[in-house]
């Protein structure tokens, strides 16, 4: 079983062991095991129907596994539901919130049901409304909210009781780019503050820019589980070189294709993205520069990174033997 160690916690926040779940003939989870420590922001990736939501809902005690078990804070959530879920915040995918309540009423309800002391509820609700930018719409019925506003309120209700574990299913879905950046930063801050966050997303960028750890699930199997950096280096040792050129980028691209270590190449405006094989020697940057100069272009900027998450993700799925299905985007 793969393992993630948090900063200093002896008891893992979340343990999932050999979890199996079947819907008729479909095996939604095929013995998933993982262990998550404190302060970890785990990004859960997988295409639609891969088992992400089943895993999350089983963790949230909304579904019962056929076999295997879950421990949250070292306890069995099926036996100690109230004690455990008081310390857990959950936001489902595209949350449907009670449309007969106003945003404020709903947050008050969630705060009360989570045992927040009555003297603190008003302040906590105001704080959350302000945090997610819904102060002006606080007394409007949720039924009148836009999709993005419901999403924001969904995040607020997951955080209002200051939980130790936050489970978010596609939290930035339907948000504008500004909102996505804001919430990514917020989740990172929460993890830095010691909270454990499990966040599923089909937006690879969200996971790449937010998560400290990665789990890739596909057809009920956990394909990868570990730190993002380790994920990338294990899944592929390839490098990605991005070059901004002054001149005709298509000519530069043509010249680059002649280099033996170039595995893939794409042009986006004046930028050229080159995937370099892990077998390339240390001089690949020099060879790239020379090829570009030979094509009559000038190099304005050059960045080298290891392979990005999207490529790692695609590769892990391909390695799984199914080339017919691409990643969820």
């Amino acid at each position: 079983m793969a393992e993630i160690d948090g900063d200093d916690s002896a008891t893992p926040v979340l343990v999932v062991r050999d979890l199996r779940k079947r819907y008729g003939r479909i095996e939604a989870l095929k013995g998933v095991s993982l262990e998550v420590g404190r302060g970890v922001l785990l990004g859960l990736l997988g295409p639609n129907g891969s088992g992400k939501s089943t895993l999350i809902r089983t963790i949230m005690n909304l579904q019962t596994p056929d076999s295997g078990y879950i421990r949250i804070f070292g306890r069995d959530p099926r036996k100690e539901h109230s004690t455990i879920y008081r310390r857990v915040g959950y936001m489902p995918e595209l949350p449907n919130l009670p449309d007969f309540m106003t945003g404020r009423q709903f947050l008050e309800f969630v705060a009360r049901v989570n045992g927040v002391p009555s003297g603190e509820i008003g302040g906590r609700v105001r704080e959350m409304l302000e945090l997610v930018g819904l102060s002006d719409a606080a007394d409007r019925r949720i039924g009148k909210y836009s999709k993005g506003m419901v999403q924001r309120l969904g995040v607020a209700q997951a955080l209002i009781h200051d939980p130790d574990l936050v489970v978010l299913d596609e939290p930035t879905l339907g948000m504008d780019p500004e909102g996505r950046v804001f919430f990514r930063e917020l989740f990172r801050d929460l993890a830095r503050g010691g909270k454990t966050i499990l966040m599923s997303s089909h937006l690879l960028e969200d996971v790449e820019k937010t998560a400290s750890h990665l789990a890739i699930i596909y057809r009920g199997d956990l394909l990868f589980f570990g730190e993002i950096g380790r994920a990338l280096s294990l899944i592929s040792g390839d490098h990605v070189v991005r070059v901004e050129v002054d001149g005709d980028p298509s000519r530069a691209a043509e010249a680059l294709r002649g280099l033996g270590f170039v595995r893939d190449l794409s042009v986006d405006g004046s930028w050229i993205k080159i995937v370099v094989s892990r077998d390339a020697g240390s001089g690949f940057r020099r060879e790239i520069s020379e090829a570009i100069y030979r094509s009559g272009c000038l190099i304005l900027a050059m960045e080298t990174t290891t392979v990005d998450l999207e490529q790692a993700y695609i590769k892990s799925l391909r390695d799984c033997g199914d080339r017919s299905r691409g990643p969820a985007t």
Binding site: N61, L62, H81, S82, T83, Y90, P92, P95, N96
Partner: peptide, 17 residues
């Protein structure tokens, strides 16, 4: 039907409660 059950049952009250 309105898919609010997922929110309601993921809170501290047990199913019995």
């Amino acid at each position: 039907e309105k898919r609010t059950a997922e929110i309601l049952f993921s809170k501290p009250p047990t199913r019995t409660e």
